[in-house]
Design a binder for these strands. Structure first.
Length: 719
DNA sequence: GTTATCCGGATTTTT
DNA sequence: TCCGGATAAC
């Protein structure tokens, strides 16, 4: 067997990982160390050298994107299709299992998936029925509670509580919510995992079947697994199953969402003879950037230990820029991006990262002003848009009449005269008859429980759904969607809306039809094409923006930047209370997670990194004067370089500042002036505030500190 | 059923 | 400050 193509071009540690004979392998893969490459080549190795059938391999990722990329690269390497292999997200694979064994899992064949938005609506309804005051008991909190329990594998009956109100009330909500899901044939994200887990746990026949089938399990981003995912993996991989897990404890940034880094150590305990391999050679960043990242993360106590290195040059120092305020921060970034582009570089090679989404607004303003094209990640995904969800809700209801969530969503969308009172009547009937809204609605119509007008409208609606299915369900997906949009009058409703919104909505509906045309049905041969499409829409919410091919600057939170890389990176808002965030500063665990986030941010940069902070930032309508982030201080001085305002003097904002000269004790101070302070040493003047005796001067000192000082007392020397 | 107004809340997010 | 959601008034 010629293994050259599989091992060629890999370094020693990578080769060792790819060709490891060990049954339990833990690969600690640092940022930019070729993690995906190792996974892909390991799969190829298992198939071509160890002669495992692709049929026996299961590979799990967290995002659809990662799953797609992995499949694509495996096929590329092997030179043939890998369709027999199970590659997917935890949720995608769980869904697949549940579809194949819906009866055994006690689900209707037509079960539909709730996304978190749908889930919240159902919870709200349930809580209303329970007469819980939603100010005292916020539905969001109940949703969080339920999901947390499911992530830990707990049903209402498994939750222990000693009469504390919070837990006992939420348990009841959880219980009622489960009932509602059962009646509606609905499954939320957490349920996909929990239900699959219980299915395999309680059904020995199925468990044996899958344990026999899967001979090797691979897991990507293992540090992000939560309790139920870990339990799930253990069930699938029996003693004879090879397991390869890949992860980086230093890049665990989803603890707040239930991810447990401890699962890595737990793996070490639970599996026999775990072989650990560290990938520490980095192929992405310059030496300077890596040293900075290493220095920052070294401040964390809870680490498995790892030190990235590179054969690459030291590269440029990391530039620090002390902006006057958030506007000036944005101004600086956009002007640097402009220069970058004028030097012949692509906008798309450049990213602006920030801790929280609110920071993107000012940045956008300035990019817009300079006519720099940009793309913001985050926000509503395609399949989450209201118009798209409305259309899909019609289809869901057509294919699964018991889907109460869909029923609620469209029973009066577009408005057809079925207000709160009419809907409440239907709910009441449903409760009394222990049935779904669809059945109840028919009964309400038959018994003429509503006013003649509402009764007529409801009947029209019910007929529309019933006939819609009969007339459309054999047509191609695209036509079904097109006809549904028309027949439901949704298009008409949106057309009435004014402004750009209406236009965008129309475009999205057209886009929905075309997404259906391009949808590949093959994944679920046993499902009707529409059911498969609807599941796809819930599991893979799609991209945020359509035009991703244009050359534009990438704006995103540090969280969403994980896994990406850019030649030029700006991290904005490097300030205490913003990053590390105020809410994560008090507890050591949370602070360490913030630091890992900083580590992730720094290691995104390939060639050049800018760290920015503002002297003054307007937060929630109030001016704040934040301190420089500790993460900047944790980077050794020799790797950093303060960007001087002197070099910026030609920019409009500051040329006007020349009028702001201030005289104190006969010494003349200017913006951008180099000064010396007895305690802080040399620095540069950023701004003046106030007048006369009360003049406050902002100075950014070379030691990294920046201070606001009363000029009269500051004993500053002009240099 | 639509529009106006008030109030509260305000990290991070994938499936 | 600014956004969205919920309520009240038309």
């Amino acid at each position: 067997m010629d293994v050259t193509p599989i091992l060629d071009g890999l370094n020693k540690a990578q080769r060792e990982a790819v060709s490891s004979p060990d049954a339990a392998l833990l690969v600690l893969a640092g940022a930019g160390s070729g993690k995906t490459r190792v996974l892909v080549h390991r799969i190829a190795w298992l198939i071509s050298v160890e002669q495992l059938s692709p049929h026996c391999i299961i590979a799990v990722t967290f995002t659809n994107k990662a799953a797609q990329e992995m499949r694509g690269r495996v096929e590329n390497l092997l030179g043939h299709s890998a369709s027999a292999m199970w590659i997917g997200t935890f949720h995608g694979l769980a869904h697949r299992l549940l579809r194949a064994h819906a009866r055994d899992a006690n689900l209707p064949d037509t079960f539909q998936i709730l996304d978190s938005d749908d889930q919240l609506r159902v919870i709200k309804r349930v809580m209303k029925e329970m007469n819980l005051d939603d100010t005292e008991w916020p539905p969001k909190q109940a949703q969080w509670f339920i999901n947390k329990q499911k992530d830990e594998g707990k049903r209402p009956k498994d939750i222990k509580h000693q009469g504390d109100l919070f837990t006992s009330v939420h348990c009841k909500v959880y219980f009622q919510y489960e009932e509602a899901c059962k009646i509606g044939g609905l499954v939320d994200f957490g349920e996909l995992l929990l239900r699959t887990y219980e299915l395999l746990r309680d059904n020995q026949h199925l468990r044996d079947h899958y344990q026999q089938r899967f001979q090797h399990l691979l897991v990507d981003e293992f540090q992000d697994t939560n309790g139920i995912q870990y339990a799930w993996l253990k069930l699938i991989s029996n003693k004879d199953c090879g397991v390869t897990i890949v992860g980086d404890d230093d890049q665990s940034i989803y603890g707040w969402r239930g991810a447990k880094i401890e699962n890595i150590q737990r793996f070490d305990r639970d599996y026999a003879d775990v072989k650990t391999i560290r990938l520490e050679q980095n192929y992405r960043s310059t030496g300077t950037i890596l040293k900075a990242a290493n220095a920052v993360i070294a401040n964390n106590q809870e680490r498995m230990g790892k030190n990235l290195w590179t054969e690459d040059d030291e590269g440029e120092p990391i530039s620090l820029y002390a902006a006057f305020n958030e506007q000036e921060e944005a101004r600086f970034i956009s002007s640097r991006i402009n220069e970058w582009h004028e030097d012949g570089n692509a906008f798309a090679d450049c990213a602006i990262l920030y801790r929280s989404n609110a920071q993107s607004r000012v940045l956008e303003e300035y990019l817009l002003q300079r006519q720099i094209p940009y793309r913001i990640y985050g926000g509503l995904k395609f399949f989450e848009r209201a118009e798209v969800k409305d259309t899909l809700a019609y289809l869901r209801l057509m294919y699964n009449h018991q889907d109460d969530a869909a029923f609620e969503r469209v029973v009066n969308t577009p408005p057809r005269g079925l207000g709160q009172k009419s809907v409440e009547k239907i709910r009441e009937t449903a409760r009394a008859e222990q049935t779904n809204l669809w059945q109840a609605a028919w009964k309400v119509v038959e018994d003429k429980q509503l006013s003649p007008k509402a009764n007529g409208a409801l009947l029209m609606f019910l007929e529309l759904i019933k006939q819609g299915y009969q007339e459309f369900h054999e047509l191609p997906l695209e036509e079904q969607i097109q006809l549904t949009i028309e027949a439901s009058n949704l298009m008409e409703m949106y057309a009435k809306e004014k402004g750009e919104k209406a236009l965008a909505r129309k475009e999205n509906l057209a886009e929905l039809a075309s997404a259906a045309r391009e949808f590949d049905v093959d994944d679920y041969p046993e499902l009707s094409p529409m059911t498969a499409f609807l599941a796809h829409a819930s599991l893979e919410a799609g991209d945020t923006q359509a035009e991703q091919y244009e050359d534009c600057v990438q704006l995103m939170t540090l969280h969403s930047a994980k896994g990406l890389e850019f030649p030029l990176v700006f991290i904005a808002g490097m300030e205490e209370k913003l990053f590390p965030h105020m809410m994560s500063m008090d507890e050591p665990d949370k602070l360490e997670e913030e630091r890992r986030l900083a580590y992730v941010g720094i290691t995104r940069a390939m060639k050049k990194l800018y760290l920015l902070y503002a002297e003054k930032r307007r937060l929630w309508g109030k001016d704040t004067y934040p301190a420089v982030s500790r993460f900047i201080r944790e980077i050794p001085a020799q790797l950093k370089e303060e960007v001087r305002l002197n070099s910026q003097i030609a920019t409009p904002t500051f040329s006007s500042g020349a009028t702001q000269d201030v005289v104190n004790d006969g010494i003349e101070f200017k913006l951008g002036q180099m000064v010396n302070h007895p305690k802080w040493g040399s620095g540069v003047i950023l701004n003046f505030e106030g007048e006369g005796d009360r003049t406050v001067v902002h100075v950014s000192f070379d030691c990294g500190e920046s201070k606001r000082l009363m000029l009269a007392y500051a004993r500053l020397e002009a240099l």
